[in-house]
Amino acid sequence: MTNNRLLASAWLPGVELFHADFSGQAFGRHSHDAFAIGAILSGVGGYQCRGARHAIPAGHLSLMNPEEAHTGHAESERLVYRMLYVEESRLPALLGRKRLPRGFAELTPCDDGAVAAGLARVASELENQDGLSLESELLDLLELVFVRHGGLRALPAAGRDSGVIRRLRDYLEAHCTEAISLEAMAAQMQRHPRHLIEAFRQAYGVPPHTYLLQRRIREAKRMLLKGQSLVDVALGLGFYDQAHFSGAFRRFTGVTPGRFQRSVRT
């Protein structure tokens, strides 16, 4: 049985996420030209790397540096994991550092659930193709992993930078129906994305992409009350498709947009 998926986005060249769900499949000796960040969700994974055989149970990570040769297989009858691949050349810009992290010393550290949850959020945004949310979740995940396991020093807490943050809020309000990239947003504010995300979170309690979604949902309610169709509302507010809109609406309101519209009109 095999139910594998490889997710990628034009928003983020050099970044891929492999969702593996298989039994009986084995990968021959190979390497990747990217850092590999994985979490075992179910079963036990295994591979040969650095001259030793490794068994990785659920609750553990699988971390690899670029060009590290390894095999891959399932130690259990069924294996489910997520693996993020990020090309080495993309890291300085994504992490906001001039130098690369020194890399992963330990291949299979235990995870407290934070990395697995971060991978799940990145996978969800890759499915949704929401550029700003995807980039924001990716940056949060990379910062977490490389500070914990890659020898990267944590950035100092972002200052208030209140003038820039007010301008960013106004920018999000003015462009709330558009596909905004984190790179374009950072260029507009002349700040690195990590700084913007943390400073905005300190000021408003949520990161920019969540603020933008909340703004879209508020506008969606007004449009639905006017009797506009779900498809028109979804596309008019910049959602990838109706399913993406419905999921976001339910996340913030607790009900689907269709149920909200019906309950108000009856």
Rank of each mutant, 00 (worst) to 15 (best):
L7P: 00
A8W: 02
L12V: 05
G14E: 04
E16N: 05
E16Y: 07
E16D: 01
L17M: 06
H19E: 15
D21H: 06
F22Q: 06
Q25F: 09
A26E: 14
H30L: 05
D33V: 03
A36Q: 12
A36F: 05
A36N: 10
G43N: 11
G46D: 01
G51E: 12
R53P: 00
H54I: 15
A55L: 11
A55S: 15
A55C: 09
H60D: 07
L61M: 08
L61E: 01
N65T: 09
H70I: 10
H70G: 08
H70S: 11
H73G: 06
H73S: 14
A74L: 09
E77T: 14
E77H: 13
L79G: 04
L79A: 09
L79N: 04
R82V: 03
R82N: 15
M83I: 06
M83W: 01
L84D: 04
E88M: 04
S89W: 08
R90E: 13
G96L: 10
R97C: 11
R97I: 03
R99W: 03
R99C: 02
L100K: 14
P109M: 08
D111C: 04
D111K: 02
D112E: 11
A116V: 08
A116K: 07
A117K: 13
L119F: 01
R121Y: 01
V122S: 00
A123C: 10
E125T: 04
L126V: 02
L126N: 00
E127N: 08
E127Q: 11
N128V: 00
Q129W: 06
Q129V: 06
L138H: 00
L141P: 12
E143C: 07
E143F: 05
V145C: 10
H149Y: 15
G151F: 15
G151C: 13
L152S: 03
G159L: 10
D161C: 04
S162L: 15
V164M: 06
R167G: 08
Y171C: 14
Y171L: 11
H175G: 06
T177Y: 05
E178N: 03
S181G: 15
M185G: 12
M189Q: 12
M189V: 13
M189P: 09
P193T: 03
P193V: 07
F200A: 01
Y204N: 00
Y204F: 15
G205I: 12
V206Q: 14
P208S: 07
T210F: 08
Y211P: 07
Q214P: 00
Q214E: 13
R215V: 13
M223H: 07
L224C: 03
G227T: 12
Q228I: 02
Q228N: 09
S229C: 05
L230H: 04
A234L: 11
Y240C: 12
Y240G: 02
D241F: 10
A243D: 09
F245G: 00
S246E: 13
G247N: 13
A248V: 14
G254T: 10
G258M: 10
F260N: 02
T266W: 06
